[in-house]
Design a binder for these strands. Sequence first.
DNA 1: CAGGATCCTTATTGATACTG
DNA 2: CAGTATCAATAAGGATCCTG
Lengths: 104, 104
Amino acid sequence: MNYNECPITRTLEVIGGKWKPIILHYLAECPRRSGELARLIPHASGKMLTQQLRELEVDRIVRRKVYREVPPRVEYSLSPLGESLRPIMIAMCAWGDANPKSRR
Amino acid sequence: MNYNECPITRTLEVIGGKWKPIILHYLAECPRRSGELARLIPHASGKMLTQQLRELEVDRIVRRKVYREVPPRVEYSLSPLGESLRPIMIAMCAWGDANPKSRR
DNA sequence: CAGGATCCTTATTGATACTG
DNA sequence: CAGTATCAATAAGGATCCTG
């Protein structure tokens, strides 16, 4: 994962993971529980989701809040740094909306 | 590469490749030759670069122009559809500039 | 120079079983 | 429920050789 030195490189280090933009998209809507994200992103295995969430946590993009209850409840949300990624998410969503798959 | 149905998914299909955002970043500056891109993105092997360029070409993001000369010359540039990705590239560059690696 | 084809080595990922 | 650990399958990647 060692790219070169153009500025986009830094951004890709943080949101370049396979599922990270999608996770961030759903967290940008509202805080979400683990199982909730798993249901929203069914193509990613649970292992992948927790792995990507851990990396986002390490990069201070995502905040992880554990409620000490039984059964356990964990809620993920965007940190302020994560919020600063919103313009990117918005631009990506806008392009996806404007250019659906059907285009040939 | 089968994600789910949020709009970002479509965008990721097109620019989600490991080297695609960086390639697009350099093509957004100006048209580039193959060897030029290889020098700009030294961490990607030639095989990877051509592979990613082919996919971008198939998705009509990038235009490939062959000059029938000896030695051969091939120039890549953004198509109009590729140009429409600019806002995403700009947002990603801006974030990378504002949040360099040194941040802890 | 650009890039296709091949072989082979690593990295990612998925499935399963298990813990607090 | 949320998450870890392990192992097997698969995909991505690099090195090399070759062609127009």
